[in-house]
Design a protein around this nucleic acid. Structure first.
Lengths: 345, 345
DNA sequence: CATCGATTGTCAATCGGTTGCCAACCAGAC
DNA sequence: GTCTGGTTGGCAACCGATTGACAATCGATG
């Protein structure tokens, strides 16, 4: 009887995968659990001697704090969520990487979730995740403004490449890279540029267009927009005829995928890039340097974007220096082989 | 005084971002909190009438269960972790996507973490994450066997492309794809194949080598391994001279990146692919179809790998049908332009 | 009309920490 | 030896759920 009772009691104690708790440490060190908690978290709150004893016991038992149990009373989960539309998008995963690193350095865990390009899935995911995180980054959101505002009332939130009134957001500012690109094309002798726009309501596409427009005007170079196009290889291929017909000697696509699609189609039709047509893109995705010819493109510091987003969020939560407003991430031209001097007729 | 006390009390109540708790619902519905819990989780445990009343109150208050609070007594977090060495690796992120989807469908959240190719970082991350998840997937681990075994004792764990005795693991089985590739090369007239191996202790590289070896022998085709090479473009470029010197008419690289590096170097040296040399890879990364010529490669069902891993893990946790052992994921040849008939001398 | 059995709801303990408040303790000053 | 002020450690409540044990309720039956 006694044995049975004892075994029940002990098995009850160590039910959870045998992980040591502060109670175990307290017992081993001969102090109260609260003292253990203080020794481990509030430097100086307990005497050096007891702290040493407690730490020794903690090591001994391979103590590892249970983040869930801690989160309950404090409300701090040390976790932030990053929601993206499509993980396989090269633009997205560099951002993920930056965010992951920044979070990791700060001792935070990053939860990544993919909304599969669907607003409904995204709403669902965010609902589910929000209560378990300290903040949310909407990487490529499909949510309506209203919804975003509502979420921001519950938890600190920041958007990337999406402007919603009253919500902090971060974006890459294409103006520097666009200016460099136009400078570059000007030097090569181009006097007329066609811009292949992205999806009609793409905020990014219009920002890039405006940056190019501004730069081109400052050079007195003609520029016009063709579009919209879907942001895919097929979109670029489909743009070919209109681009060629336009008579422009240089084509700038709103992203690399479209630029690559255009190059492939042009090559298929017997045009040589860059001899017959110069092509440039935006993003500098991994494949940009692998294709033939390698793509001249405007690179965004996506990793910086991701890490800045995390840092900003952490600051509003109270980790790191106080928040200093959001500063956009810069962009830079990467010259490769797809742009060249204008053919002399 | 009374007012002050009241305001303190109420602010104390709604301290946490105003989220409603089961206590609020209980009060609104005039029942005990435990009844609320049962009404929401144990179908039939409370009368239909009360349940309806409770659900109404829950909706009214926009109740959302606090996953942390639930996890504490149950030990279930509804979260699983996926640890990878490098998020930007194309092979990795398809796996991530598969895992994310499978998890999401099962109502689980996937936590992704990058170990930055470092065993120490990985060990650290795993330590930190383990107590807050129901299971762990080691995607591309650098941990020593001993450590993995130790982790597996604490939480359900599965490895991908890494065999550790006694630990469930999942891999893509290259044999089918390798067989198809050799069939294909045989048809094109190749009688001698060079294999560009990966890093010396790469488990994946040796599995692929063995699969090719087996297939080549069954065809009576000569095959030999050159290497090791680093799994990068540079690694492929560096392999060029030895590959050419070998006299093989076809080169199979252990992954696409190496294959692409080889093609680029060969092209730079004036060789034509596939006319002078056929090249193939493994993985079918995104860039494989973008390069010139597009790469013939053996594709793994990486998305399947990721989702299988999650499903397996969930089953051992007790979600879904009982566990049925691990079955490797299959591979398939994708023929593109980098392989061709042997040049007739 | 009393009793039985099944159904429904409540109590209270628990998960593993955190933290406000208080008491014990200590050393030094008087 | 007493008083003072600052440390140090303990008690107990609490975070928001879950759950075993039990009591109340209800309808049906003898």
């Amino acid at each position: 009887m006694t044995d049975a009772a004892e075994s029940v009691a002990s098995s009850g104690r160590r039910r959870k995968s045998g992980a040591a708790t502060i109670y175990d440490i307290a017992e081993a060190a001969g102090v109260n659990p609260s003292t253990v908690s203080r020794a481990l978290n509030q430097p100086g709150r307990v005497s050096a001697k007891t702290e040493a004893r407690i730490r020794a016991a903690a090591d001994e038992l391979h103590f590892q704090i249970n983040p869930l149990a801690r989160a309950l009373p404090t409300g701090r989960t040390n976790t932030i969520a990053l929601i993206v539309a499509d993980i396989t998008n090269p633009v997205v995963f560099e951002t993920i990487r930056g965010a992951e690193r920044a979070a990791s350095i700060a001792g935070y865990t990053l939860v990544i979730s993919e909304s599969q390009e669907s607003g409904a899935v995204e709403a669902n995911t965010v609902e589910r995740i929000t209560p378990a995180v300290d903040g949310v980054i909407l990487g490529t959101t499909r949510l309506p403004d209203k919804e975003i505002v509502r979420l921001a009332e519950r938890k600190p939130l920041i958007t990337l490449n999406r402007e919603v009134k009253g919500i902090p957001h971060l974006a890459s500012d294409p103006s520097h890279g666009a200016q460099q690109l136009v400078d570059h094309l000007d030097e090569l002798g181009h006097r007329s540029i066609a811009f292949l726009g992205g999806p009609s309501r793409s905020w990014m596409s219009s920002r890039r267009w405006e940056a190019l427009l501004h730069a081109a005007r400052s050079h007195g170079i003609a520029i016009f927009e063709i579009g919209p196009h879907s942001p895919t290889l097929a979109g670029g291929a489909a743009a070919f005829e209109r681009a060629e017909a336009s008579g422009a000697t240089a084509v700038v696509a709103y992203n690399d995928l479209v630029a690559i699609g255009l190059i492939q189609e042009a090559t298929r039709r017997g045009l040589r890039v860059p001899d017959d047509l110069s092509v440039a893109g935006f993003d500098d995705i991994f494949a940009a340097e692998l294709i033939t010819p390698p793509l001249t493109t405007v690179r965004s510091d996506l990793r910086g974007l991701g890490s800045d987003a995390v840092r900003h969020l952490l600051r509003t939560i109270g980790v790191g220096e106080p928040v200093d407003g959001t500063a956009d991430v810069t962009t830079e031209l990467v010259v490769r082989g797809s742009t060249g001097t204008v053919r002399q007729n």
